[in-house]
């Protein structure tokens, strides 16, 4: 199955330095992501650690209405918990556009294939939560649907075929790194 390279949906907007405790608070790390019921439950708590009133996953809901997160710099800093990209993916989000990513979070996005992590090559427009955006991975651009502004995205490079394969295991099998 080839991953879609065009994602359109409402964006959830956050600031700089959203760490893994805000993405998935530590008290939910008792959940094991490979147990299907607990995977789903992790999705419910995605971004539950964000201070403030705004909810990524509405109270009582299982999924987020936002398929894209637009963030500032250093998204995913902190812990190596894979629960972080998994919670976002389980909630129904598929792309995070951030000015920069912390290393382990970025790698976990790609290894799991849960989240497409992309960085803009220029300034992001002033997007508000709920605004529609389109991410196009073939043309490496983000379209802000409100006024048609186009933001260039840095190419995913070597990470894209891994994401296309659905994570490192499928990718490794396809390329003969695994028996």
């Amino acid at each position: 199955m080839k991953r879609t390279h065009r994602i359109k949906g409402p964006a959830f907007v956050v600031g700089d330095n959203i760490d893994t405790d805000q993405i998935i608070p530590a008290k939910y790390l008792n959940l094991v992501p490979t147990i299907p019921k607990e995977y789903e439950e992790l999705g419910r708590y995605a971004l539950a650690g964000l201070p403030g009133e705004e909810c990524f996953v509405p109270e009582g809901a299982d999924k987020t209405p936002y398929s894209v997160i637009v963030a500032g710099k250093n998204f995913g800093c902190g812990s190596s918990r894979e629960h972080a990209p998994i919670a976002l993916g389980a909630a129904g989000c598929s792309v995070v556009v951030a000015r920069s990513f912390a290393r382990i979070f970025y790698r976990n996005c790609i290894a799991t294939g849960e989240i497409i992590p992309v960085e803009p090559s220029g300034e992001l427009p002033r997007i508000q939560t709920g605004d529609e955006v389109t991410i196009d991975l073939d043309e490496n651009k983000m379209i802000y649907e409100k006024d048609g502004t186009i933001v260039s995205l840095m190419p995913l490079g070597e990470a894209l075929p891994v994401l296309d394969a659905g994570g490192i295991f499928n990718y490794a099998r396809q390329h003969g790194f695994l028996g």
């Binding site: 902190g78 382990i104 976990n108 490192i168």
Partner: peptide, 22 residues
């Protein structure tokens, strides 16, 4: 599978944190 695995760099080794899938 823990970001503070880098502690062991004190002992002249390469030590780093990774996720569950890796």
């Amino acid at each position: 599978t823990d970001s503070h695995t880098c502690t062991a760099g004190a002992f002249n080794e390469f030590a780093t944190g990774i996720g569950n899938t890796d």
